[in-house]
């Protein structure tokens, strides 16, 4: 509701302010679509800024899914705006002519091109062979161009924005998201620079995973909920776009000593194995709503695929430290036996708490005693207890697994509010 109201504000400011002679329906619709597009795209800066007051309760991955959907909508509005205006009145072709007003025309071209590039580079980043860091830099720069260019264009159109008060209100309104972008890129890294961490261990683990241990350097560390994740920066300075999200595997009971498990999925995660002990690092966060309330006494079922087991390890370790005694189940699915991440730790947890583990392999070795195949409804029926209101389900894994497990759990009667899942395919 708040989001909708904020998005509509630019439109309402201009409509309630200066009221010029009405034009035909197509032109007025085009004008409103343009103003709506400006509101939608300006709010995109707020949505994606990892502001805890906005994304805290919703979960960052959900917010980014929404950001993605709404971004495409904003782009369609940007395209529909000139199209409607021109169809309604061909005289608006003058807006595209630099001789009639070069700044107005250039800002229009800029917004059209930059927003199209923004969408294409996000939807097909991998197809373009664009590295994640470069994509982040380009995404931020294009977003800034689109919103400032869009604001400039709206002010120069001078129809609804004829009055000075309207201009000032619109400028102020769009200025706030622009300032928030500065907060994200400058003030936040500066705050992080005041709370450095030191890499204390870098260990190779099964499944090509690297375990990275960090120690708080001169501060009390970071309070987090088990299952949450942080954005990690390693190296010289926190003022860099080399920032990547990873789940904690350490228990929340040790805020000054954080462990991350990193699988080589991109350029940065491939290079983590070469990081030297003693290297400085910075953490931004914690983020995420994928967490267990260890004190609730509720039973928990964890269903993990591959690296998706990491947040669950943090939850289980925290439960152990806090002496929880409610029964728990962990279904840990992997392709091969050699890829089972933290197997020793997981098996040792089962000895010390009321935890039942089900290892599932797609490609089992001869003599394998665990489950085989993909996690589906029949397997869940076999390995899990009957569903009950006091059981929460946590699911984290690759998208195809999530797409099959979530409906399978729903088919078993699991209510949506007891099904907590996390997806990591952000871009």
């Amino acid at each position: 509701m708040v989001y909708t109201a904020l998005v509509l504000t630019p439109m309402l400011i201009v409509v309630l302010g200066h009221r010029p002679e009405p034009r035909n329906l197509l032109v007025e619709s085009g004008a409103m679509l343009g103003l709506l597009g400006l509101g939608v795209l300006a709010m995109q800066l707020v949505i994606s800024g990892r502001h805890r007051w906005f994304a805290g309760k919703l979960g960052l991955d959900n917010v980014l899914q929404y950001h993605r959907q709404v971004g495409i909508f904003g782009w369609l509005l940007v395209l529909a705006h000139p199209l409607c205006m021109l169809l309604g009145n061909p005289e608006y072709l003058a807006f595209l002519d630099p001789r009639e007003g070069w700044l107005r025309a250039i800002s229009l071209y800029l917004v059209l091109l930059a927003s199209t590039a923004l969408i294409l580079t996000s939807l097909w980043r991998e197809r373009f062979g664009l590295q994640y860091e470069w994509w982040r830099a380009i995404h931020a720069a294009l977003a800034l161009l689109v919103v400032t260019g869009g604001l400039g264009h709206a002010l120069m159109a001078d129809h609804y924005t004829g009055g000075w008060l309207t201009k000032a209100l619109l400028g102020g309104l769009i200025g706030v998201p622009l300032l928030l972008l500065l907060e994200t890129r400058l003030i936040r890294p500066w705050r992080m620079s005041q709370r450095p961490w030191k890499v204390t261990a870098v260990e190779p683990r099964a499944g090509d995973v690297t375990r990275l241990a960090l120690q708080a350097d001169g501060h009390a560390g970071m309070q987090f909920l088990p299952g949450q994740f942080v954005w990690l920066t390693v190296g010289e300075t926190p003022f860099t776009l080399q920032q990547h999200p990873f789940s904690m595997t350490s228990p929340a009971t040790e805020p000054d000593r954080i462990e991350l498990a990193i699988k080589p999925l991109g350029d940065f995660s491939r290079s983590v194995a070469d990081v030297a002990c003693g290297t400085q690092a910075w953490l931004e966060g914690p983020y995420g709503t994928f967490s267990i309330d260890a004190s609730s006494g509720r039973r928990a079922v964890f269903i993990a695929g591959g690296i998706g087991v990491t947040p669950m390890i943090s939850m289980l370790r925290t439960c152990l430290d806090r002496g929880c005694d409610q029964p728990m189940w962990l279904v840990d699915a992997n392709n091969k036996e050699s890829e089972i991440i933290f197997r020793d730790e997981i098996d040792s947890l089962a000895q010390r708490m009321s935890l039942q583990i089900v290892h599932v392999l797609v490609d089992p070795p001869p003599g394998w005693h665990g489950e085989t195949g993909y996690v589906d409804e029949a397997m869940l029926e076999k390995v899990l207890p009957p569903d009950a209101d006091d059981i929460d389900y946590f699911v984290c894994g690759p998208p195809p697994m999530m797409d099959s497990v979530e409906p399978a759990l729903r088919a078993r009667g699991v209510a949506a509010n007891r099904l907590i899942s996390e997806r990591f395919e952000l871009v």
């Binding site: 619709s29 709506l36 909508f73």
Partner: peptide, 30 residues
């Protein structure tokens, strides 16, 4: 599950916003 709701929320927001924008345009034309 939540990501499906997040996507749905995006689509619903788009439809509502579009309806408001076109409604306002209609009112402006009179």
């Amino acid at each position: 599950m939540q990501h499906i709701y997040a996507r749905r929320a995006g689509i619903i927001a788009a439809i509502v916003l579009l309806a408001v924008a076109l409604g306002v345009a209609r009112v402006l034309v009179g």
